[in-house]
């Protein structure tokens, strides 16, 4: 009995120095796994179906954002252009670009809809209703003019700044939820919608569920 107690005391003394070792080791491994390895594991990287070059379209073709991404007459947003819209210029190759040639062969000629294949970085699930009409530049800049100098700034508040890219960024998708890594989540919506300052005046927003959910 004596011996045992002696042992116990020794152990207690030792653990005072070494005891935390295994704990810290376990903690570190788990933390590294949890913070780094696990998110990697959960993410799938996808390439866009066509290496669309925004810069070329803006700078060389002289297009504006609104040529493709516009508000329809009925208030809905066009989003990504359709194959038919692309084919207005690209019915046959107008450059030597391999991607363009491939796009025409695989999409325009075969009548495949690019809109269905394109990966939207801010893709919202079906249960979300986002109104591009309501979140417009004129309204937001009544107060937030220092934040958004151009309409594009407002777009970039949620969207990736793809307009300045020559090749589309990699699309990162969560394997389990299927959500894009860049998509906007509810706390971001609530940053404005749960802020009572937006309830009157110019924005007249509400935080009712069905304003964003359908």
């Amino acid at each position: 009995m004596e011996d045992k107690n002696q042992n116990l005391e020794n152990v207690t003394k030792k653990s005072a120095i070494l005891g935390l070792g295994p704990f810290i080791l376990g903690l570190t491994i788990a933390a590294i796994f949890g913070w780094h390895a696990f998110p990697e594991l959960m993410t799938k990287e996808l390439k866009q179906p066509v290496a669309f070059n925004h810069v070329v379209h803006i700078e060389q073709a002289g297009m504006t954002c609104e040529d493709c991404h516009y508000l329809r007459q009925d208030g809905t947003f066009s989003g990504v252009p359709t194959t038919a819209a692309c084919a207005e210029c690209h019915s046959s190759p107008i450059t030597e670009n391999q991607e363009e040639i491939r796009f025409i062969a695989e999409y325009v000629d075969k009548g495949v809809e690019i809109k269905d294949k394109w990966l939207v970085y801010q893709k919202q699930p079906d249960n979300v209703f986002f109104s591009h009409a309501a979140h417009n530049f004129e309204t937001c800049t009544q107060c937030h003019d220092y934040l958004y100098e151009t309409p594009q700034d407002l777009c970039n508040a949620c969207h990736l700044d793809v307009a300045s890219t020559t090749t589309p960024p990699v699309y990162k998708e969560n394997r389990l939820s299927g959500y894009s890594k860049n998509t906007m989540m509810m706390p971001t919506c609530e940053a404005c919608h749960a802020n009572p300052e937006h309830y009157d005046g110019i924005t007249r927003a509400t935080n009712a569920c069905a304003v964003c959910h359908k």
């Binding site: 508000l71 329809r72 007459q73 009925d74 208030g75 809905t76 209703f129 109104s131 009409a133 309501a134 417009n136 069905a210 304003v211 359908k214």
Partner: peptide, 10 residues
């Protein structure tokens, strides 16, 4: 919601 958006667009 769609009616409101339509109004804004117009």
């Amino acid at each position: 919601m769609l009616a409101k958006d339509k109004a804004i667009a117009n």
